[in-house]
Amino acid sequence: MSHALRRLSRRRTAAWAILVLFVLITLLPFYWMLRISLSNNRTLFANPGSLMPTDFTFGAFKRVLGIATLAEATAEGGSGANIDFWRYLANSVVTSAVITVCQVFFSAMAAYAFARLRWPGREKVFFVFLTALMIPPIFTALPNFVTVKQLGLLNTYAGIVLPYLFMTPFAVFFLRQFFLNISREVEEAAIVDGAGHAHIFFRLIVPMSSAPIATISLLVYIGAWNEYFWPLLVGQENDVRVLTVALGIFRAQSPQAGPDWSGLMAATLLAALPVIALFTVFGRWIVNSIQFSGIK
């Protein structure tokens, strides 16, 4: 017995060791990003092997927040771009939030039709939806740009969110798979009680799938948050520019020049913070909402 226990605990130790290793590999590049973001761009390459920031400075963060003067920025190897950080942050929050709510909601409706309703041609239509995943964005960007331009929505929030608002094949597919897993009996009981489809969808399916819905919401939010090329095309104006587009200024601006490394890393870390905060709340919620498995 104690033998078996010891073996069990040794196994658990090994399992934990693997998990910790994964966590370390995940985190190390983040340490490196932090190190670079706290370094002076001009001294970065002179000390490639140093594990600490070179010539420690908060200058990069100041540049990202738009509170560094032109002279300060250029002295540390940054560009003198104007950055209205809080406005871009707000734009990112608004567009990502609208995209998340609408996309998840509409995709859930579609997923319900694909998973829980019976109608001729269902699988075929679903597969057609799925094929939308396979169209490279460079081929959708151009026609969509023309569409949005013709709708007169260039440089508006609506233009930025529109292509992502109704569905993505990913969200539909994801939710369908989870809806498929829900036991039929509960639904059938509700039908016997005379419940309509709206009732079943809102009162049964959605609450029972709260964990997957929370998961997909988070993933959609992150995806919307990181979207770069589309908002770059349709949202150049300062009023609607989102964070990723604005912080693109820290990438290489001319063909041979390198990026403003410190600024880029500081921008990346700062831009990730709001989503991390979101996850801190959502993550716990995902854990707390997995009760439905007992329903069966």
């Binding site: 509409f106 995709s107 409706m109 579609a110 319900y112 039709a113 309703l117 109608w119 001729p120 269902r122 239509v125 939806f129 094929t131 939308a132 169209i135 081929f139 959708t140 151009l142 026609p143 969509n144 569409t147 529109l162 292509p163 608002l165 109704f166 569905m167 094949p169 539909v172 489809h197 969808f201």
Partner: peptide, 23 residues
């Protein structure tokens, strides 16, 4: 089928305009 069409409508609009047409 009619119910499914209602549930699919928003997604189908998005699909047709932003995926099917470019494709």
């Amino acid at each position: 089928l009619p119910v499914a069409m209602v549930f699919l409508l928003p997604a189908a609009v998005g699909f047709a305009v932003f995926y099917l047409w470019p494709a």
